[in-house]
Amino acid sequence: MATRAPIASRPGGSRFAQFKLVLLGESAVGKSSLVLRFVKDQFDDYRESTIGAAFLTQTISLDDTTTVKFEIWDTAGQERYKSLAPMYYRNANCAVVVYDITQASSLDKAKAWVKELQRQANENIIIALAGNKLDLVQDSSSSDAPAGNPDKRAISTAEAEAYAREAGLLFFETSAKTAENVRELFTAIARKLPLDQAGPRGLPRGPRPGVDLRPEAAGTQGGGACNC
């Protein structure tokens, strides 16, 4: 799957760009919930774990002339899928690494993902760190959401922010439940993406892989053909 410059100019000077985005992070931190909030503006209190990976798209306008379409891979955070992760981030233009601000261990996991991305993914990948479930630590006075409890916070904003700055990441604390900062997160990513580098190349829809020329190995299971 070759990465292509995902920008196209449209008549009238408007720009349309398409980017691959991957969500990574420990299981149950709220990756799918963030995506569902962003794509469908919905939230589900009882959400079953993602099985495998889900693919969704959402288009946002940055300004009157610029439209960005995200092709989003929402991965399952479970260990057993770990070996499949490269398939999803390999050609990603951007990544959202999510942790749960009420679970200390989830930031460690996020840091590990950031490291892996910086080592293995596209050189120019834009990475955002999202500390999710902000609603759980906000007391009722500061929002109309159901009362949270500041004591539940396991990771301070300052700590995460410092780490994000050091690692060169965008950083937001979000709540998929109340929608706080969700749109902002994706918009910030879109703004940081290299919209202006690419020339006006008319591109076909979506980064599709070329025709796979590998012989169709009969009975291959578990791939093995690709060891990235």
């Binding site: 569902l36 589900d44 989003i72």
Partner: peptide, 27 residues
């Protein structure tokens, strides 16, 4: 019967083993 796939609201790409077909590997 389960919600994990349907509730995701998108397209899905799911590694799974179909034991009747071959219990040794993923599809």
């Amino acid at each position: 019967e389960a919600e994990g796939v349907k509730g995701g609201g998108g397209e899905n790409w799911i590694p799974l083993c179909l034991p009747g077909f071959n219990k040794n590997g993923y599809l």
